[in-house]
Amino acid sequence: VMATEIIADLKKQLEEAKEEAKDWEESWNMCREQVRALSRQSDIISMVLRMDDVELLDLAFGFVRGCYNQQIKKEQE
């Protein structure tokens, strides 16, 4: 009987550890995506700051505005 209780307790602990590991993995993935987004934002800003051709800046602005509007629509769905 004692061994059965120990095994049951260990199984419960294992399930709890699996859930905790799953939560950690989800948090890690979210952090990794945030780092990726911030890095990309920084890269884009850095490139734009080096641009001085107004026509190219207008093209870039139009493209970014379109992407931003798509994101807004996607978030509203």
Rank of each mutant, 00 (worst) to 15 (best):
A37D: 08
N29A: 07
E15L: 03
E77Q: 13
L38P: 10
Y68N: 04
L10R: 02
S42Y: 11
D52S: 15
K73Y: 06
A3Y: 08
L59N: 14
K12L: 11
N69K: 14
E16P: 05
L59P: 11
E77M: 12
M47Y: 00
L38W: 07
E16G: 04
A17W: 01
D53A: 03
N29H: 05
R32M: 05
M30C: 14
Q71G: 02
K11E: 03
E75F: 04
A17Q: 12
K18P: 07
K11V: 02
K11C: 01
C67I: 01
S42L: 09
L38C: 09
V48Q: 06
D53E: 13
L56I: 14
D52K: 15
E15A: 05
L38S: 13
Q70P: 04
K22D: 11
W28F: 01
I72E: 04
L57A: 09
S39E: 03
D43P: 02
R36V: 12
R36P: 13
C67A: 06
S27K: 15
E5M: 02
C31G: 09
Q70K: 15
R50C: 00
N69S: 14
S27G: 13
V64H: 04
S39L: 10
T4H: 02
L59C: 11
D9V: 01
V64I: 00
S42T: 12
R36C: 13
R32N: 06
K11N: 09
N29L: 14
A37C: 09
K11H: 01
F63V: 06
E75D: 15
C67Q: 11
N29F: 00
L57P: 12
G62R: 08
R32K: 13
